[in-house]
Amino acid sequence: MTKQNLASQEKTRKKSGDNRSLLITAAYKLLAQQGYEATTVKEIARVADVSPGLFHYYFDSKEQLLLEVIREASDQYKRTMAQLRDEVPRQNLTEAALARTKERVAREPEWFRLCYELYALGMRNPGLLPAAGELLERKRNGIAKMLQAIAGESSEDGQSSWDALAALLLACFDGLALQKLTQPDFDLDAAFQLLYELVEPRLKSNEG
Rank of each mutant, 00 (worst) to 15 (best):
K102F: 01
F112Q: 02
N5I: 08
C172M: 08
V50I: 11
E103S: 13
D174M: 10
D174T: 08
L176Y: 01
D49Y: 05
A45I: 01
A26W: 06
A97S: 11
Y119V: 14
A38H: 13
E153K: 12
N206D: 00
D60N: 14
A45D: 01
L54Y: 11
G152F: 01
K11W: 00
N92I: 00
I44T: 07
M1L: 05
L168D: 10
G127E: 12
G175T: 01
Y119H: 14
S16D: 04
K15R: 15
N125T: 03
L165W: 03
T80S: 12
F192H: 03
T12W: 00
A73R: 11
S160D: 09
Y28V: 11
S154E: 11
A132S: 05
R140Y: 04
L65Q: 04
G53Q: 06
F186C: 02
T39L: 04
K15H: 11
N206G: 09
L6T: 15
G35C: 02
N5K: 13
R20P: 09
E103V: 05
F192R: 04
D163N: 11
Y28K: 14
G208S: 11
D174R: 00
E43P: 03
L168C: 14
C172S: 11
N141M: 10
G142H: 02
Q4M: 10
W162F: 15
G175W: 02
A106C: 09
Q64T: 08
G208W: 00
C115N: 13
A38M: 08
A32G: 15
W111C: 03
L168R: 10
L98F: 04
